[in-house]
């Protein structure tokens, strides 16, 4: 059985930052593997360790810089990676769901996996849509916001999963394979890459591909979305602040809490 994991390098923004036009200045960004994808990679590697998956392939859409991040997925146990990038993708400040779907659809068709694992959402653009859109385009079945996968069920051709609904309720669902599962944080405990894993990852393949290599042209990823403004959300705080250093502030808070009857024996 083959498992494909979609991964994305995302930028995290520091507490203090500057916006220039419709983007954040590079100096305030730190690049890392998308948090949800880290859990998806771990789930795939666990399927491999259980002897259910023969091969785990990581796929990403990203510039050369992202190889460092993708290599972390390889260090954690993915066998090889495919990285798609193209001059046609360079200028877009926001790649829409349709474009990502068109690209990943071609890769999945080439790889022909039984299960595709993707994160529920990416922390940067936060669309939360690519996995399900991809499944529909492929004619794969799917389940969104999965926080448990029954490994044994997978071998029977049906994945028994739990979907995390709102309000502490989980939905139990059987999903026919092949399928795309979008993975929620907390489904497992993502491992740290071992030194040995990191060394091995240096020798693993990250195959670069262009749109042309996938049989796509620039029109396939044309964007109907245009980012027209970016700003810091207005703070609406009307909180009373306790100041004068930690001890002084703690004293004032203690007075307030006593007033409210908190901690009274």
């Amino acid at each position: 059985m083959k498992v494909l994991v979609t991964v994305k390098e995302v930028a995290a923004v520091e507490d203090e930052f500057q916006i220039a036009g419709t983007s954040i200045d590079e100096t305030y960004l730190e690049y890392d593997l998308n948090e949800w994808d880290d859990y998806a990679v771990e789930e795939a590697v666990q399927l491999q360790e259980a002897g259910i998956a023969d091969e785990v392939v990581a796929v990403t859409i990203g510039p050369e810089r992202s190889e460092e991040t993708i290599r972390m997925a390889l260090a954690k146990g993915a066998d090889r990676a495919v990285r798609i990038w193209d001059d046609a993708l360079e200028g877009a400040d926001l790649l829409d769901v349709g474009a990502k779907t068109a690209i990943l659809e071609k890769v999945v068709e080439e790889e022909d996996p039984d299960i595709v694992l993707s994160g529920v959402q990416a922390d940067d653009d936060g669309f939360g849509a690519t996995g399900v859109s991809l499944a529909d385009a492929l004619g794969y079945e799917w389940a969104a916001v999965v926080n448990h996968l029954d490994q044994d069920s997978v071998e029977s051709g049906t994945a028994s999963v739990r979907r995390e609904l709102e309000g502490g309720v989980e939905e139990l669902t059987d999903v026919e394979l092949p399928a795309v599962l979008t993975i929620q944080t907390g489904i497992n405990e993502p491992r740290y890459a071992s030194l040995r894993g990191i060394r091995q990852a240096q020798r693993k393949e990250i195959a670069p591909k262009t749109l042309g290599d996938l049989g796509l042209d620039a029109a396939a990823v044309e964007n109907e979305l245009e980012l027209t403004d970016m700003y810091e959300p207005e703070t609406e705080s009307d909180a009373t602040y306790f100041e004068g250093g930690p001890d002084e502030a703690a004293g004032q808070l203690a007075d307030l809490l006593r007033e409210k009857g908190v901690g009274a024996q």
Binding site: A11, V13, G126, L227, T228, M230, Y231, P233
Partner: peptide, 9 residues
């Protein structure tokens, strides 16, 4: 970016 900025699209 996890709520750090708002955007118009």
């Amino acid at each position: 970016y996890g709520g750090k900025v708002e955007t118009t699209t």
